[in-house]
Design a protein around this nucleic acid. Structure first.
Lengths: 337, 337
DNA sequence: ATGAAAGCGCTAACAC
DNA sequence: GTGTTAGCGCTTTCAT
């Protein structure tokens, strides 16, 4: 287990003091070009790279952001993490990813773990609107925190998300313009802000249309739930013209159950959803879905993190982005084939 | 940005020296019960938790394992990471996850990053059998490294994987016993050990059966490739009795393309695959797939990491686990419905 | 511009 | 058993 090479090794090899070597390697302060050259040379010859922990301990800055997602097995969150990773890479920073396993206690432990790792900031998609709040609020006292996608009741943090009302409005408008008049909603229980907002928006937008309590099905953000809910819907009586799904992972299950029941999408029933996962273009029929500008949102997260690092007392703010609709086969009129 | 509380704070509050506090908090050495109580009390009152980086710097041990996957957007790897996380959690350790984005240079940078973070060991699923080797070999000089699932040419590391030959043998045997006599293979190019072994095994097992060069389609591990390859297969002439897929993510695309072409699975063609992703039970027809014992494999990874940490010079070893076959709808005989 | 020395928070060695 | 001291690897005063 060979000892890793340190600044001292580089300094010795370059015949300078550790401080000079450090100055060159971290790009701080002026040094004689010739010395700098020697340090650089020695550094690359010895394949030096700095011990992140020692540096962080000294500078109180790790160039690392902690990210906590509710469930990494949900491909939507994978996409979010990828966008964040891209945005951070632009400024040479990296990310530590934690999975809360849909559990607020695990989530709280992760928050603590990341703080002890001296991350420069925390990005969190809260597990629960209420349950996640205490731990998040506490963290926000100590370091920059941005809530992403979902917002909990925690104070002291910025928020980046997308406009769920507008998303649902676009969905319903699109469905209506294609002749749908009755709608079911298959989504998640209102324990998260997104689930709650989408459901509310659905009620608002379908107000005045024929409806039935059996047409509102609430469970969790999973494909399994999409299948189960659709089975229940099928068993409960006549079907609506369209199903609005709270997320693509749910819609995938809905499509499977409908196919099994030999109900054709979109000719017999239309299906629309949120998230625009890449997998949604790879099923048949391809899924019409609400798209959020993930890349832009990730950039905004990084911006907010940096802004708060610079001025910790700045007022918190919510950045809400407008989604758009990507129309695919699952809502097209039969005649347009 | 309130300063976080340190051992000194706890020690002061408990009226003991920092070292005594440390002894209590890290559970090393004997201390007077009464003092211990005071320390514990102060610690929880002040909500102390140790700075991971400072501790790691001193003890040269971070209780953290680095994990590098080729592409986190592949759900198979997500499952692997979850299994590892479980296995590590049992001993109170955690994991830092990095995505190599299917690129050996990124992979090499990640390896370096993790070493600088003083991880106690590295688990890596190599991007490339050849290209990944140098960086992995170099890392293996400095810390315990286990290659998982795929193996590169790197030396000095242990390996945990599953028996690809046996997997394919089970697949073909199953298909034959259900009347299939001609087989196509849709998999990935042989840049990884798993892709290479599965292809070889396919050739071995189908030796003597009618075949055609058009029935071997090699691309990457993606749903997109599954769709493209199937389209090519359809265009190239008569279809085989069955398609063997290199991975479930590929099979998902295969199923979609077949459905689009109105070819029924399994009555007109059977589809079988590797990985047994949960999503494979959520499509219709449900996918017959080779299952690897991921949990057991993850335990073995942890065991090997610990063993090498204890004795760095121990001989390297390969632990190859036997997979089994999970039969579902995509290979069942039509009459069994 | 450069080097010596101090210190980030922690724990292992060493005294007592 | 407890406290004092030193040092992990780095950066940053502080002198020069």
């Amino acid at each position: 287990m060979g000892r890793r090479v340190t600044v001292k090794d580089v300094a010795a090899a370059a015949n300078v003091s550790p401080s000079t070597a450090s100055r060159v390697l971290s790009g701080q302060g002026d040094v004689d070009p010739e010395m700098a050259r020697r340090v650089t040379e020695a550094s690359s010859r010895l394949r030096y790279s700095a011990n992140v922990m020692a540096r962080a301990l000294r500078t109180r800055q790790s160039d690392t952001i902690g990210v906590i997602v509710p469930a990494i097995n949900n491909p939507y969150f994978v996409g979010v993490v990828e966008a964040l990773e891209q945005a951070l890479a632009k400024t040479g920073r990296s990310l530590i990813l934690c999975d809360a396993r849909d559990d607020v206690d695990t989530e709280a432990r992760r928050i603590d773990l990341l703080q002890n790792r001296m991350v420069d900031g925390l990005v969190i998609i809260p597990v629960s609107e209420q349950g996640s709040a205490p731990a998040i609020s506490a963290a926000a006292l100590d370091l920059p925190v941005v809530q992403l996608d979902r917002i909990s009741e925690a104070g002291g943090t910025d928020f980046v998300g997308s406009d769920d009302f507008e998303g649902v409005r676009l969905s319903i408008e699109h469905l209506k313009s294609h002749g749908a008049n009755t709608f079911a909603y298959i989504g998640a229980l209102s324990t998260t802000s997104t689930a709650k907002n989408r459901l509310r928006a659905f009620h608002d937008q379908t107000n005045g249309h024929p409806s039935s309590p059996e047409w509102i099905l609430l469970g969790d953000f999973s494909t399994d739930w999409g299948r189960t809910a659709t089975a229940r819907l099928l068993a409960s009586g006549p079907m609506p013209d369209a199903i609005v799904c709270g997320a693509d992972v749910i819609a995938l299950g809905v499509l499977t159950s409908l196919r099994l029941a030999k109900i054709d999408v979109p000719s017999q029933i239309k299906v629309i959803s949120h998230d625009n996962l890449s997998i949604s273009t790879m099923v048949s029929p391809q899924l019409t879905s609400i798209r959020q500008p993930l890349d832009v949102m990730a950039e905004e997260v990084v911006y907010l993190l940096d802004a708060r690092a610079k001025d910790f007392e700045r007022p918190t703010r919510k950045s809400v982005f407008t989604p758009d609709l990507v129309v695919r086969e699952s809502t097209l009129d039969p005649e347009s084939y």
